[in-house]
Design a protein around this nucleic acid. Structure first.
Length: 560
RNA sequence: UGGGGCGUAGCCAAGCGGUAAGGCAACGGGUUUUGAUCCCGUGAUUCGCAGGUUCGAUCCCUGCCGCCCCAGCCA
């Protein structure tokens, strides 16, 4: 079956894929080639995931390939560390560029030759105007610009100057190469855009070899053409650049003819995705680094325990369009829960322990109960769970004076201990300050495993852990970074959620969790999805909450 | 007052002249040894607004309104 007869119902549909289909049908291309072109000047975040999934996804769907290309045309901002981090993140997301790893800088010599060609044909010139002068000459959005006094110098003179620029004869910023297009164009991008600037900065790939660098506009389309990219997908702010993109392709002997399509970038509520703001969060110490689990970076999600599959699913739910949109965080959270629900092994863990003594259970005795690992997946099997006279239950699962509809423990109330027995609360022990510090309960030996032979029902089932067998842990409860759905422009601090991280110590986990691997997702029953943090050590376990379970009880209480 | 885009339910979005898909959220109800999961049900007489063309318009035309992007030797 060829890509074009793929049943449309199973495949995402959007204006880009429609265009590709019609290109294929019309025979304009035999292979579809896309590219993900990050600039190595920062870390990838979930907004990039949209571009990654689109570019790699489309290539996969149509049997083509997607290049990973670093847009490294500005050495003043770019670093080798970012290149490695970006590769790791793309791989983690689940995509493989195979042999197709490229750099815009691979083409610096060719680009330069094309620049000379443009000068020779009178389509580019060296300008001596300063940056400030150039701005004045450019005009405004409503007034046309004026020609630079250097615009009409001979191509011989420009060529000589360009060669001197390359040779390092001039200081940084003193001259530029400009395309000769139209200083009166309505689209300001066409008012003689800069092609090359003089810039002495060590380049992560080419070192000190160059002291002039091509601009984005002069590099992007030609690089696409050299790589044989057929569909160059970028975000909306480049729409105004498309005429320029096409101008270079029209005026240079490029080996292929790529076409640019623009789609809207992803915005998410309760977070920020601008490079500048993310940088501030890290630099001002609001988070502990780029991979802080509160960050919307791919490394942050990874550390938090969000599976790559959940991010791919989320992006897949989104549609590719051209309208400006801000997606509700709830949609991402849904994909995370859905992915984890199907795959995460269930475990019992008590976050805020309350001791319970089962007074009619023999002291010193231990028995092994059987617990289901994943009710969604019978093949996940079961595990043994130790039970004994003293256990911990969740403090929030007890109320001395419960409201109606509270189904958990309270004086005289019988509940089920998950996978274990029914217990009834007989006595509440408080400290001098009146805090509940222990419960004394009795259990019904006939209810082993959680069912009563006499058929009596119990309203609540709570989780627990055997005190003698439990392992202690620190648990970091993460929540949305900003309480504001749409964090205001400048003052991030006001919108930050102070409870985005709540650290709990002295939590008690079932013994199985002692050997959990970092990043490996588990569900703590009735609480949420968690994973061990890289900070975790054998005798100092640390778990991160990826996301809580939906909580109808909390919702009910909130409504009063 | 220039140019380029966008405007369909709280959010995202399909629709391409024939009488408004789907997902998320919300709200009801059912199942349940996770108040989880799962299942069922509930939403636009209306598509930014106003005209026009047409037997018929969210889809075509005109005008208006609103929002976003562009005046880096950033990408």
């Amino acid at each position: 079956m060829s890509a074009t007869d793929t049943p449309s119902a199973e495949v995402p549909r959007d204006f880009i894929r429609d265009a590709i289909r019609s290109d294929l049908d019309a025979g304009r291309h035999t292979e579809i080639v896309t590219r993900f072109p990050p600039e190595p000047n920062g870390h990838l975040h979930i907004g990039h995931a949209k571009a990654i999934c689109l570019n790699f996804g489309v290539a996969q769907e149509f049997g083509g390939h997607c290049n990973l290309r670093f847009d490294d045309t500005n050495p003043a901002k770019e670093e080798i560390e970012f290149i490695d981090a970006i590769k790791q993140d793309v791989r983690w997301l689940g995509f493989d560029w195979g042999e197709h790893l490229y750099f815009a800088s691979d083409n610096f010599e060719q680009l330069y030759q094309w620049a000379e060609a443009l000068v020779q044909t009178g389509k580019a010139y060296v300008d001596d105007l300063s940056a400030d002068q150039m701005r004045e000459y450019r005009g405004t959005l409503t007034e046309p610009g004026r020609n630079s006094p250097f615009r009409d110098r001979t191509s011989e003179e420009s060529l000589d100057l360009l060669r001197q620029m390359r040779a390092g004869a001039f200081p940084d910023g003193t001259r530029v190469l400009r395309a000769k297009i139209d200083m009166a164009a309505d689209n300001v991008n066409l008012r003689d855009p800069v092609l090359y600037r003089i810039l002495r900065a060590p380049h992560p790939r080419t070192g000190e070899h160059w002291c002039i660098y091509p601009t984005y506009d002069f590099a992007h389309g030609q690089t696409d053409a050299i790589e044989g990219v057929t569909h160059s997908l970028c975000s909306l702010e480049f729409e105004d650049h498309r005429p320029l993109y096409d101008w270079f392709l029209d005026n240079l002997p490029v080996p292929s003819r790529p076409r640019q399509y623009e789609f809207s970038r992803l915005n998410l509520t309760h977070t920020v995705l601008s490079k500048r703001k993310l940088m501030r969060l890290v630099q001002d110490g609001y988070v502990d680094g780029w991979d802080d689990p509160r960050m919307p970076t791919l490394s942050g999600f990874r550390r938090r325990g969000v599976p790559a599959a959940a991010i791919r699913d989320f992006i897949g739910q989104l549609a590719i369009s051209k309208s400006y949109s801000t997606v509700e965080l709830a949609m991402l959270e849904h994909s995370i829960r859905e992915t984890l629900n199907a795959t995460a092994p269930r475990r019992l863990a008590v976050l805020k322990p309350l001791k319970v003594t089962i007074t009619n259970y023999p002291a010193g005795e231990t028995e092994q109960l059987e617990a289901t690992n994943n009710p969604q997946d019978q093949s996940a099997g079961t595990r043994p769970l130790p039970f004994s006279r003293e256990i911990y239950v969740e403090h929030d699962d007890f109320m001395a004076d419960p409201p109606r509809k509270f189904f958990r423990l309270s004086p005289g109330r019988e509940v089920r201990l998950r996978f274990a027995y029914f217990i009834t609360c007989q006595e509440v022990i408080e400290d001098d300050a009146g805090n509940v510090i222990e419960l004394r309960c009795t259990y019904d030996p006939a209810t082993r495993g959680g069912n009563a032979p006499d058929g009596r029902k119990v309203k609540g089932t709570i989780h627990w852990v055997s005190a003698a067998h439990a392992v202690p842990a620190e648990i970091r409860l993460y929540d949305r970074l900003f309480h504001a759905a749409h964090p205001a422009g400048d003052d991030l601090q006001n919108d930050l959620n102070p409870d985005a991280l709540v650290t709990l110590k002295g939590c008690q986990l079932e013994p199985h969790l002692a050997t959990a691997e970092a990043g490996q997702a588990v569900q703590f029953e009735r609480q949420g999805y968690f994973c061990a943090d890289p900070d975790s050590r054998p005798n100092a376990l640390v778990f991160n909450r990826t996301i809580g379970l939906r909580d109808a009880w909390a919702k009910m209480q909130a409504k009063g």
